[in-house]
Amino acid sequence: MTVLEESSPPPEPVGPPDDQPVIDVRDLRMRYGSTDVLTGVTFAAHPGEVVALLGPNGAGKTTTIEILEGFRMRSAGEVRVLGVDPARGDERWRARLGVVLQSWRDHAKWRVRELLAHLGSYYLPYSTPQASRPWDVDDLVDAVGLTPHAHKRVNQLSGGQRRRLDVAIGIVGRPELLFLDEPTAGFDPEARREFHDLVHRLADLEQTTILLTTHDLDEAEKLADRILILAGGSIIADGSAEQLARRISAKAEVRWSRHGERFVHSTTDATRFVRDLFRQYGDDLEDLEIRRATLEDTYMALVREVESGRSGTALRELSGADR
């Protein structure tokens, strides 16, 4: 890493080069009193990536994201966000982040457009020829689909509209890195879909790196390039939805019946097993059914296992593509 002289001009906030991760967390630990919440979290996020931090409630997702945002001190471990230790992040560093926390009730009397224009004005000094800051208010209001509500008071918005305003506030400074903590909690399916579209647009058009937390596997699958499963204080799985599905749902269950008697067999190669079945029994085979465990089944089993204290086996099972 280059060491900058005090007197040298500040580096342009253009983001780290592609080979350097936007987020780099190594052996992050957090302890409240005598309770260990995080027991060694390690992961990285690269420019333009959408990463979902998935885990059951109380797994430490919010704690992790708050440490990365610089809102909470960690107990131990190495953390770099945009190349800076969040515990020492200055305002220039802060200007490159977007933060959407869990539900707010603030600025109830402000009007949508008024609030975005106001909060945007703090980012004016950070504008560069590559990225003009802040985001044009009307474009932004439009991007989050709030144009019909631009002149409404914040306390007149519905839950979903309010959340979209939160996202608009999070991205008003055109951040290089956006944190979304449980972004769709309390959304109806329609609002959720619109929100997912918005996140895709941000990642594709703006090349924003996004770290989001969720306890909803389906959401993680839809949004993220990569899913990190956080349970028992550490990351127990790391990979794309396909990779995770392939790895942890390798076994399939084959059910059939013969002469009215039912059979169940668990196998890693269902196709070959069924071929053998047909060769052996031919027309006697009835009610054939092959069930592959869904990602969700496996995720639930995994989390349950970690929570009941047998994290060792889970880690062994997953060690393959983990690190």
Binding site: R94, L97, V99, L101, R105, D106, Y126, I169, G173
Partner: peptide, 19 residues
Amino acid sequence: EREDGTLLRAKAVPHGMLG
């Protein structure tokens, strides 16, 4: 405003607390 999150919002913005 600390309770409703206004202050936290200010904290998330560069020099937001000053403003």
